[in-house]
């Protein structure tokens, strides 16, 4: 049913995807033109973007949970306000992104249902638990830092609505990243217990954050066409390396140790990191991370518990419309 729904967005004309249209499309991409919702596009381009943008949207929404876990326990009113504002921003990012995905012809409800059914993914990182307050700092610093590395190039992505959404998202995201780093600075200048808390957060988040950039280039299944269509502008490994190079000096500034004793700087100045545990990554993607079940359960519960509210809003809107019709008829 869902696959069918995805396919219908291709319209009745999908069979006339001829060579000329494809060539024209690729020429526009090569000339760095933006593709807009009413433009012709290959069915596979539509499909891959729907997948990517909706998964990005799901990530924003599921990503509210690990941080939301600490809103009621934030240790000062200033931190509490900043965290609440940040999580609210993320919900807003989710809404922009669903709107961008909808321009490709699939409704937000259908996309959300796919996620709740476990058929559409969200970022692997949100399947890790926030065990201490320092995790909130580490998420802002590392997770948002990695997200920015991924998202800045998407501001130039070939699909106009996605690129424009990313420009807005990135502005807020860099603000969050600075807030997270500031939490880490405060903790690393604090008591021994606070420093230990900061180190523990870095230890637990470092490798999962490196996995956010996706599988290594040689194993990445979507890379070839995504690069050709300028959805993707840098490879997973290129972005991961950029992130590591930017983050090592920040960890040094904090006086924290990256949990990779084999890490060393090479002659080009790049930091060479040790092998990533791709088995863990695959397990998390397969639903076997530490919080996969909790995250989906929380989203399903919100969805199910809220059903009567959404039904009430619909029923009221319908009654109102009928009353207005009746009045107009009088």
């Amino acid at each position: 049913m869902y696959t069918q729904a995805l396919n219908t967005s291709d319209g009745d004309n999908s069979h006339i995807e001829d060579a000329a249209r494809s060539a024209n499309f690729q020429a526009r991409i090569d000339a760095d033109e933006r593709i807009e919702p009413n433009d012709w596009m290959p069915a596979a381009y539509r499909k891959t973007l729907t997948r990517q943008i909706s998964q990005h949207a799901h990530s924003e929404i599921v990503g509210m949970l690990p941080e939301g876990n600490w809103i009621t326990r934030a240790p000062s009113l200033r931190r509490k306000a900043a965290l609440l504002a940040k999580v609210q921003d993320e919900c807003g990012h989710g809404l922009y992104l669903y709107a961008a995905a909808e321009t490709l012809g699939t409704s937000r409800e259908e996309l959300v249902d796919l996620m709740l059914a476990g058929k559409s993914r969200y970022s692997s990182i949100f399947n890790y638990p926030t065990l201490t307050w320092a995790d909130i700092g580490a998420i802002g610093w590392l997770v948002d830092g990695a997200a920015i590395m991924n998202q800045i190039p998407l501001c130039r992505c070939s699909y106009g609505p996605y690129a424009r959404a990313m420009i807005r998202v990135c502005k807020e995201e860099s603000f969050h990243q600075r807030q997270g780093f500031e939490i880490m600075v405060t903790l690393s200048k604090g008591t021994e217990e606070q420093k230990a808390m900061a180190q523990s957060a870095l230890d637990r988040w470092w490798w999962p954050v490196l996995m956010m950039f996706g599988p290594p280039d040689k194993a990445s299944q979507h890379s070839d066409t995504s690069t050709k269509w300028k959805i993707k502008r840098f490879s997973n490994d290129e972005l991961r390396q950029k992130f590591v190079d930017a983050t090592v000096p920040q960890a040094q500034f904090l006086g924290l140790t990256i949990p990779d004793p084999g890490m060393k700087q090479n002659a080009n100045g790049n930091w060479e990191y040790s092998a990533i545990d791709w088995e863990e990554f695959n397990q998390v993607l397969a639903g076997n991370g530490p919080c996969n079940r909790d995250r989906l359960a929380a989203r399903r519960k919100a969805h199910d518990d809220g059903a009567w509210v959404r039904e009430a809003a619909t029923a009221y809107a319908e009654k109102r419309k009928q009353r207005q019709h009746a009045q107009a008829a009088e």
Binding site: M64, L65, Q88, G92, L95, A302, D305, G306
Partner: peptide, 14 residues
Amino acid sequence: SEWCGHAPMMEEDM
């Protein structure tokens, strides 16, 4: 703030 992430719809979460 306890509602954060658990509201009946995203608009209401915000």
